[in-house]
Every structure is written in structure tokens, then in C-alpha cells.
């Protein structure tokens, strides 16, 4: 068994798709980190002073424009023209039309500053999404190409216990993807913490804040593994990489476009409840609120409030878990029973 595991680890690492995808993954994630390093600026007294000066300039410019408008209005009124088409009837004797200094916020002119504690959660989701795509392609190709080229059949002549071969391949794949996720996840966290430290703000990182990030990261890693396993299962069922890619496109089109349009036309309540991406959002956000705007619930203040449906991360776990289990069960059943011709 150790020999088979060693062979599969070597096979996965030697594959061109795996190597290419790792390079693209590292380059892609690196590019995002570099872009945010360049985009984020640590805000200090100089940046605040510059922003205040710019805000004051904008206020004065606005005031100058207002006074110029008043003068043009007065001139038009003197000429007996109907000014009410373009200006207030009294050419703005109402002071409410004049720009006020407090309407100009200094923060508008501050440069973008990355805030690690407030914003890194979103970047964990981005990281997980990219890793899930990586896992999908590598997982589908790993077993799909093996079947398609006949290498799997050749291997089964050496190791006739089919399920043992399938589980070893799946285990090695999930282990490899998890390893890459953990290593790159640590580098991703370190990179954004450094951006916050030197080009932005880290915020007050309490133990609770780190735990929250860790839990979001764990959910992200779970999604990456589920997507990888589903891709592996689909490609194994179809004995071709294209089976997984085709199924992904099919589910994407059907779920995100077809179901959404059909349910909206049929006026089904909370149509997005049946769309897969809703569960992805709930998975990362812990809960996702769907609103039914056609309903009108009068609040105490007399306002019309929509109906609410909450999708929780536990429900997402159930959907993803069941989906993964069904695909893997089908792959296992076919591996056991199919004739390899």
C-alpha cells in the first residue's frame, strides 16, 4: 500500500497540469497581494493634511461655482428671462442651496488603506474560491486523464483492488490540495497582515479575531476539498476530464441562470433559495439573508418590510456534503462494477 501511495504522490506531482496550475495559482495569488500592496497607503498626519487641503479646495471650488451660477441667474433675471427653468425662482436667496463646508468629508480624499481586521475575511473567501478552481481542474484532470489515456487500466493490471486504487488516488489528491491550501493560506495571511502592518492597519487583533479568521479559513478549505472531490468523482464517472468540466458548466448555467430565471418568471418565493451560489455565500458569511420584496409586512413605523429567509452555513454544509457524497458514491459504485473496456 505504501508503494501505491508513493507512486500516486509522484504521479500527481509529475503531472504537467498540476505543475502548471501550481505556478498559475502562485502567480495569481501573488499578483493580488502585490496589487493590494501597491493600492494601500498607510494614512498618517501628512496624508490627513493633504486630504483636508484637498477637501477645502473642493469646497471652495464648489462655492465659487455656486456664486458664478448666482451671478448668471441674476443676469438672466435682469434680462427678463424665465430663470425658473434652470435656477431657483429667487436665484437662490435660500441659503440651503449654497454648499456647506460640512458637506465635504475629508475621508473622501484619503488614499485607500487596507484594514486587516475588517477586510481580511473577504480575502479568505477570494483565496478559497481560487483554490477551489485549482482543486477542480487538478482533481478532474488527475483521474480523467488517467482513464482517458488507459494509464488507469494499466495500473489496475498491477493493483487489481479497484477501490483501493480509487481511494488512494482520492486520498493523495485531497492530501495534496489540502497541503497546498494550508501552505499558501499561511503565506496569504502573512502577506495581508504585512500589508496591514506596513501599508495599512492591522486593527486590534484579539484572539477572537484570529479564531474567526481561522474558522472562515477552515470553511474555505472544506469547500476546496469538496469541490476537488466532486471534480475527481465526476471525471472518474465519465472516465474523462471533460465530464467534470462539462458538468460544472452545466450546473453553473442551470443553477445560476436557468433556475433563477424560471423561478422568477413563475414568481416562486425566495427563488435564490434554489441557486447554488446562495449556499456558497452563506458558507462564507455564516448566514445569508434572502428578501421577498413582493411581500409587505407593515412595521411599527408603518413601513413596508419584505419577508426574510435565512440560509445558514449549516444548511450549506448539508447541501455541499450531500452533493459530494452522491457524486463519490456513484464513482465508487461504477469503479466496483463497470467493465473496463
Amino acid at each position: 500500500m505504501k508503494g501505491l501511495i508513493r507512486a500516486e504522490v509522484r504521479r500527481l506531482a509529475k503531472r504537467r497540469v498540476t505543475r502548471l496550475m501550481v505556478v498559475l495559482l502562485v502567480l495569481g495569488l501573488g499578483a493580488i497581494a502585490v496589487a493590494f500592496t501597491a493600492a494601500s497607503t498607510k494614512v498618517g498626519p501628512a496624508q490627513v493634511a493633504a486630504a483636508e487641503a484637498e477637501t477645502q479646495r473642493q469646497y471652495e471650488e464648489s462655492l465659487r461655482m455656486h456664486q458664478q451660477n448666482l451671478a448668471e441667474c441674476e443676469a438672466a433675471r435682469t434680462r427678463g428671462e424665465n430663470v425658473s427653468l434652470y435656477w431657483p425662482p429667487d436665484c437662490s436667496t435660500d441659503p440651503g442651496f449654497a454648499p456647506q463646508r460640512d458637506q465635504f468629508d475629508t475621508s473622501w480624499n484619503l488614499p485607500y488603506e487596507f484594514h486587516f481586521r475588517d477586510q481580511f475575511g473577504t480575502f479568505i473567501s477570494v483565496f478559497a474560491g481560487i483554490l477551489a478552481l485549482f482543486g477542480f481542474i487538478v482533481g478532474a484532470s488527475y483521474v480523467g486523464a488517467e482513464w482517458h489515456t488507459g494509464a488507469m487500466m494499466n495500473l489496475l493490471l498491477w493493483r487489481p483492488r479497484r477501490l483501493s486504487v480509487l481511494f488512494t488516488k482520492l486520498g493523495v489528491l485531497l492530501g495534496g490540495v489540502l497541503g497546498i491550501t494550508v501552505v499558501l493560506g499561511a503565506l496569504w495571511t502573512a502577506a495581508f497582515w504585512l500589508i496591514g502592518r506596513y501599508d495599512g492597519q492591522t486593527g486590534k487583533m484579539t484572539q477572537g479575531a484570529w479564531e474567526s479568521f481561522a474558522l472562515t479559513g477552515a470553511r474555505g478549505a472544506g469547500l476546496v476539498l469538496a469541490v476537488t472531490a466532486v471534480a475527481f468523482g465526476l471525471a472518474s464517472i465519465g472516465r474523462h476530464t471533460a465530464m467534470a468540466l462539462g458538468a460544472a458548466v452545466g450546473v453553473g448555467v442551470l443553477s445560476e441562470i436557468g433556475i433563477r430565471i424560471a423561478l422568477t418568471v413563475a414568481q416562486v418565493r425566495f427563488a435564490d433559495r434554489w441557486v447554488l451560489s446562495t449556499y456558497v455565500l452563506a458558507w462564507f458569511q455564516k448566514r445569508w439573508e434572502l428578501q421577498e420584496w413582493r411581500a409587505c409586512n407593515l412595521s411599527a413605523s408603518g413601513q413596508c418590510e419584505p419577508d426574510i429567509f435565512i440560509v445558514t452555513w449549516q444548511q450549506s454544509a448539508l447541501v455541499f456534503g450531500l452533493g459530494t457524497a452522491v457524486v463519490l458514491a456513484a464513482a465508487i459504485w461504477l469503479m466496483r462494477s463497470r467493465d473496463i473496456t
Partner: peptide
């Protein structure tokens, strides 16, 4: 062949 050798010990 090296991979097959590993797989077949």
C-alpha cells in the same frame, strides 16, 4: 516504468 515499479513495489 518507475511509477509502475513503485505501485507494484
Amino acid at each position: 516504468l518507475s511509477l509502475l515499479a513503485d505501485a507494484g513495489e
